[in-house]
Amino acid sequence: MNPALRARLGRVGLNAAGIVVFLAAIFPVFWMVSTSFKSEADISSLELRPLPTEPTLEHFAGIFTEGVAGHSIWLYLGNSLIVALSTVVVGAVLALLASVAVARFKFRFRATFLVLLLIVQMVPAEALGISLFLMAKRAGLYNEILGLVVINVGLTLPFAIWMLRNFVAAVPRELEEAAAIDGATRFRTFWQVLFPLVAPGLVATSIFSFIAAWNEFFFALVLMQDDTKYTMPIALRYFFGRNTTDWGSIMAASTVMTIPVVIFFLLVQRRMVSGLVAGAVKG
């Protein structure tokens, strides 16, 4: 075989492999979205129908009007949004302060704090579930959305600090020194010089925390008792448990929950990778 033909065949093979990976990766999501638009006849048909033959919105209409766990899916989307946004706002402030301390100052216990951060990220949240459940119960936060917010802040904070400190460290110190020489106070230097430059990193970190809080399952399962206080994952789990055969509606609810996360995810994926394997890649 001549080299040119061989190179071309190699290229075709690689592209074919690429298409196979692409199809395998999107298939489950495709199937979820496709099912959510299918009529009952398509869903229970004995032959395989990848696409809805007569697309319908009845499943979406159903989850918004009749609801999923006794109430419209709006309620659960709202609960999840409250939990995720509160987690993000509180977490962002705490993470920003801590990451400035870690990236801009030298002090005793600095290395200790960083090692601690690494270690607590590795403790399985599920293992802390029992203690946190009892603490929430004693603090009157059982079955309260506030309790879920507090726990989500705790769960997302270590990684948020870990990620954000890289962004703070990337801002050249000379800028702040120049501002200080010009007589700016520490606060002004922070607010007018450092903060605008760290803002993109703060957005990325916040989106990460948002996704984590939006998807959080375990603590919402353990803490939320009233069906009016369920977050989206628990409502979906409950709905699925009750209507195991109504796949059209289950997939519609699942689609509604998944879309916001996917959009956010595509915005930050690059930074998430660098946050998780920071150092290892830089060598």
Partner: peptide, 17 residues
């Protein structure tokens, strides 16, 4: 982008799918 879809799907959704 295809892989991102798989990665971004919430654990609960993927289990139900």
């Amino acid at each position: 982008i295809g892989s991102m879809l798989a990665w971004a799907t919430p654990a609960i959704s993927s289990a139900i799918i």
